[in-house]
Nucleic acid binder design. Sequence first.
DNA 1: AAGACGCTCAACCGCCATGTT
DNA 2: CAACATGGCGGTTGAGCGTCT
Length: 185
Amino acid sequence: MRKPCCNKNDTNKGAWSKQEDQKLIDYIRKHGEGNWRFIPKAAGLLRCGKSCRLRWINYLRPDLKRGNFGEDEEDLIFRLHHLLGNRWSLIAGRLPGRTDNEVKNYWNSHLKKKLISKGIDPNKRCKARRQSCVTNNHKVSKPYASAPDHQPSVLPDLNLTLGLCNRADENIDGTGRSPTLRLFI
DNA sequence: AAGACGCTCAACCGCCATGTT
DNA sequence: CAACATGGCGGTTGAGCGTCT
C-alpha cells in the first residue's frame, strides 16, 4: 500500500487564504522552487506539498496570463487537441502564460460545447488517443510511437515537430526529466 | 422572494514515470 | 534489481455564483 503524500490530519484543505498565498509567494521568491514536500514546512504552511505546487503553478506564478482566451488561443487549442488529445500540459506548453488546468477547464466548459454545437463529437475528434505500448523498452503512448522509426513528424500548419527522445541528456525544457514526448519548436 | 438548476473553476485524488538508495 | 520518494499529469469533485422558473 502506497503511503499518502502527506499526513491529512496535519494539513489544511480547500480554498487558499490570502495569508497562505503570501507565505508561499514569499518563500519561493526567497528560496526558489525546490523540494515541494519540504516547502510547506519551511514556509510555515499547513498544506500538502502537492497542494503548494499546484497553487504556485496554476495561480501564483508571476508569468501567468489571466482572463479570457483569445480567438487565436482557442484556435490553437482546437488544433492541438485534435492532434494530441487530452494532453493538457503539452497543449498549455504552447500557450504562454496558460496552465494545463486552465486549458482543461476552458476546454470542458467552453470549447467542447462549441464543437458539439457544430455537430462535431469532441471525443472522436482527437487523432491521438492515449493507449500505452512498449517500444524500444520504453513505454510510450501509441500516437507518438506510431511514426516510423520514431522520426519526428512535421506539422507545418502548426509550425510544430513531434518527436521522441529517450535520453536524459536530450532534455531541452530544463525539467531534468526525460519524457517520452517532446515538442520541437 | 426563494428554490431549483446549470455553469465555472479551484482544488483534490489517484496513478504513472523517473530518480535515488 | 527492488523498494521507496518525489514530481507531474489527467480525471473528477464540489463550492460558489448566476440564471431561470
